[in-house]
């Protein structure tokens, strides 16, 4: 079990306390004290599971900016894919050509891999089934509702789109 580190506790505490403030939406002294105590206890217990690496990774303008830009890039991809799948659903659900492709991914960080996998799953039309590591390279197994390209590398370009580039910029 990893050890609890002080910066991790601090950042978990800040997150918990911000959540508390947002949910209660009052600046009453009693509320603040109760929230601080609860957040501190939660942070002490959960920090080592919640943050494994560098706790203040995002406290840099370049990374934070990339993260905010990524939200908009992702929304664009999301709307495109949603319209595509909704069109297939309304046109009788016969216009599908499913398959599972193995796609190479070039990301260094574990968090970046998890983030890309979740983004791909969240886009309608593609679901990440598994992440495999072979000979130092990472591969995703992706279920694709409409296999437009049989070559793995090109299929990866189509599925990942601009998302991989932006995620690499966040986690470099």
């Amino acid at each position: 079990m990893p050890k609890t580190k002080f910066p991790a506790v601090v950042s978990t505490f800040i997150l918990c306390f911000a959540f508390w403030l947002l949910l209660t939406w009052s600046l009453d002294t009693q509320e603040l004290i109760a929230g601080a105590i609860v957040s501190l206890v939660a942070a002490l217990f959960c920090a080592r599971f919640f943050i494994h690496d560098k706790a203040f990774w995002f406290f840099r303008p370049a990374r934070l900016g990339a993260l905010i830009a990524y939200v908009f890039v992702f929304l664009g991809e999301l709307i495109k894919a949603n319209v595509d799948v909704a069109r297939r659903c309304f046109s009788g659900c016969t216009d599908v050509n499913p398959g599972i492709v193995k796609v190479p991914v070039d990301l260094k960080h574990d968090y970046a891999e998890a983030m890309l996998a979740n983004s791909i799953t969240l886009t309608p039309g593609t679901i990440t089934l598994d992440i495999a590591e072979q000979e130092g390279k990472t591969y995703y197994y992706i279920h694709w509702i409409d296999v437009a390209e049989l070559d793995r590398d090109k299929a990866g370009e189509i599925i990942k789109g601009r998302m991989e580039k932006w995620i690499r910029r966040i986690w470099q």
């Binding site: 799948v85 909704a86 659900c93 016969t94 599908v96 499913p98 886009t123 309608p124 679901i127 509702i145």
Partner: peptide, 17 residues
């Protein structure tokens, strides 16, 4: 209406996004 399990899951992602 989708033909198999995985395609049904793909369609359900539309609802959650």
């Amino acid at each position: 209406q989708m033909p198999d399990t995985y395609c049904r899951m793909q369609a359900s992602t539309c609802i959650t996004t």
